[in-house]
């Protein structure tokens, strides 16, 4: 479904991504782990096209998308949520979701009809609002919503384009344990044919939802395996769990 071959990215003399390769099966749930500065978000930025790689190739269904722009890759079925909320602050929750849904349905260019009143768009808006538990505040402006609600909307925007590949950058960053449980359920309830890549710091959530785990350190893939293999792996313990335990 999504394949990365020898992806490299340098900023000047700093190699942030070093020959990263992996391949995702359709419907796979992949969690990317790694300490701060491991290059996880850079990897996402490369995948969606917000950064151009120094070398290497990104393929969707075997076709290279490396030369495509951000919007073209989104049209190819890739969608992401951001680590820092990146929303339409002045609009309501409903308007946010409707903008995303219309874009996903390629109805954003209609000049004679209103996408916000389109039945398909409305259906997606209600559907996604239900998925991310925002049904009650659909008509509230985003700038008045709580941080937790905005986190939910962040994921909701990514879902509303009806992607084939969903990239979530730390969806639970800054939220409490109650919401982590809700995200866990959200991810398990996603359709099984949706391929999902998640950057996650919450290890319980990571081990719960992942089919496979990729561990990055200083831009290198240092480990790839199932959650069980990850738990027992010494390198992973040293570079990631070790740090994590020391922090706690």
């Amino acid at each position: 479904m999504l394949e990365v071959r020898d992806l490299c990215k340098s900023f000047g003399g700093l190699d942030v991504t070093k020959k990263v390769s992996f391949a995702l099966e359709p419907g796979e749930r992949r969690v990317v782990l790694g300490p701060n500065g491991a290059g996880k978000t850079t990897l996402f930025n490369l995948l969606v096209g917000e950064l151009l790689p120094t070398s290497g190739d990104i393929l969707i269904n075997g076709a290279s998308v490396t030369a495509l722009s951000v919007d073209q890759r989104a049209m190819a079925g890739m969608s992401r949520s951001y680590q820092k909320n990146n929303l339409f602050e002045d609009f309501t929750v409903r308007e946010n979701l409707a903008l995303a849904a219309a874009a996903g349905l390629s109805k954003e260019k209609w000049i004679a009809r209103d996408s916000f009143h389109d039945p398909e768009v409305r259906e997606i808006v209600l559907d996604v609002a239900n998925q991310v538990a925002l049904t009650d505040i659909l008509d509230a402006p985003v700038h008045s919503a709580s941080y937790g609600n905005r986190r939910q909307l962040e994921v909701g925007l990514a879902l509303a384009t009806r992607p084939k590949i969903l990239l979530m950058d730390e969806p639970t960053s800054g939220v409490g344990p109650g919401m982590i449980g809700a995200f866990n359920k959200l991810i398990s309830d996603l359709p099984r044919d949706l391929t999902v890549v998640i950057i996650e710091h919450d290890l319980d959530l990571a081990f719960d939802v992942a089919d496979r785990i990729t561990v990055l350190n200083y831009g290198d893939v240092v480990f790839e395996g199932t959650p069980d293999e990850t738990r027992g792996n010494q390198i992973v313990r040293d570079i990631y769990l070790g740090d994590w335990q020391a922090d706690a």
Partner: peptide
């Protein structure tokens, strides 16, 4: 229209609009 909505969306947050396709 959808066109105008999208234009307002671009004004609100252009990078996100691009990320939405």
């Amino acid at each position: 229209s959808a066109f105008g909505r999208t234009m307002c969306g671009i004004h609100g947050n252009e990078p996100r609009m691009r990320a939405l396709g």
